[in-house]
Amino acid sequence: MADGSGYKRCGAVFAFLLAALLLLLLVNIASGSVSIAPGEIFRILFRREGDPTNCNIVWQIRFPRALAAVLLGGGLSVSGFALQTFFHNPIAGPFVLGISSGAKLAVALVMILLLNQGRPVSSFEMVLAAFGGAMLSMCFVLAVSVRTDRMSVLIVAGVMIGYICSAVTDFVVTFADDSNIVNLHGWSLGSFSGMTWENVSSMSLIILPAFLLVFFLSKPIGAYLLGENYARSLGVNVRLLQTALVLLSSVLSAAVTAFAGPVSFVGIAVPHLTRNLLRTSRPVLVIPASFLGGSVFCLLCDLIARTVFAPTELSISSVTAIFGAPVVIWMMLRKKREG
C-alpha cells in the first residue's frame, strides 16, 4: 500500500462494516414476535418513552441480546485471528482446534456441580471455568503442534478433542437434574438468548480489554507474519508474543463459550473474509475490522436464528456453520491450488 488507493479501500470497508453494524442492531431490535417500528425504537432507546411492554422488550431482552452478539462475535473473530497468527495458518480457529469444546465441557461440569449444591453460578465463575477448559484443550493442541509440522494433523487432532469434549459434555448433561438440562441443553448448542445486562457488562469487561491488547500487539504480529526468526531479528520478543497470543485467544473464546456456548466457524471465516475485503494483512487494520466483521456476522446469524423459523429458535452454531463452513472449504481448496 504505497499509494492512496489502499487507504481509500480500507476506509470504505470500515464505513461499510460500521453501517452494517448499526443497521443490523436496529433490525435485530425491531424484529421478533412483536415488531417494533424504528421510530419507536429510537424513542425507547434515547428518550426512554413509549409503550411499557415494548420498552421492556427492547431494554430487557433485545438490546442486551444484540449487544452480546456484537461483543461475542467480535471477540470470537479476534480469537480466531490470534490463533491463525500463532499457527501461521488461516484454517486455525477456536472451534476447529477444540478450544471452544474444552471450555464448554469445563463450564458444563462446573454448572452441574454448583447447581446440584443449589448455588447459582456467577458470570465470573463461568468464565473462569471456561478459561480453564480452553487452556486444557490449548495445551493439548500445543503438544500436538510441537510433534508435527503438518497443519492437517493438527486440525484433525483439534476436531477429535472437540468430539471427545462434546461427548463427555453430553454424558454429564444426561446425568444432570431435569431442571438443569433445559438450561444446559440450549446453551451447549450455542445461543445468544437470555442475555442480561449483568452478562453484557461482565463480557465487555473481559472481551474489550482482551481485544485492545491484541490490537496493541499489531506491530509485533505484523513482523511475526513474515517469519518467527525474522521477527526476532527485528527485536520482537517472540516467546512473549506467542504466549500472549495463546492466552488472549483462549480468554476470548472462553468468554464467548461461557456466555453463549460454542459458536462455530466465526473465528476462521470472519478474519479471512475481512482480510480479503481489505486486501491487506496489516494487523493494525485487520484486527479492528475482524472485530467489526465478527459483530456484523453474529448479529446477522442471530437474526436468522431467531426469525426464520419463529417462534422456534435455531441454535446460533447451526446458522454460523451454514455460512462459515463453506468459506472454510473454499479457503482450503484455494490453498491447495496455490500449492
Binding site: F216, S218, G222, R275, T280
Partner: peptide, 25 residues
Amino acid sequence: RARPELVTCFEAAAAGRYPYTGRLG
C-alpha cells in the same frame, strides 16, 4: 522467511522500519 498472502512488496520491505516506528508500527 514466510510468504504470507495479501502482503505487498512495499509492506514486506517496510517491515524493516520496525525498530524505528511507534507503538502501532
